[in-house]
Amino acid sequence: MSTVAIYLLTGGLLFVIGLHGLIVRRSLLRKILALNIMDSGVFMVLLSLAARSDPPDPVPQAMVLTGIVVAVSATALALVLLVIAPSRYTDEHDPNA
């Protein structure tokens, strides 16, 4: 198996792990972290696609850079909402969650 294929599969695996966490975990903080893992998975797929050619393809790298900016903004927004949410809404044992 080539190096690129290993990275591609790892990226896919990270995406699935994150998806699992997002669905299964009840705590909102864990859900946000799970989304970040999914982000990393997608970025890894993009970067391994870029590495297929020599020199590496710049377009996926530019996409990852932009993607990181988007992911950071989204995470920041999610964390702010988590902080200002009334505390009972972030409780892991919220009966309505």
Partner: peptide, 24 residues
Amino acid sequence: IRAAIRYLLMNLLGSLCFLLAVAL
């Protein structure tokens, strides 16, 4: 706020599926 967080998480999941598809 709680509705907003739920909305955000669902939409981010949707965007990520889209982004992975763009990568593919």
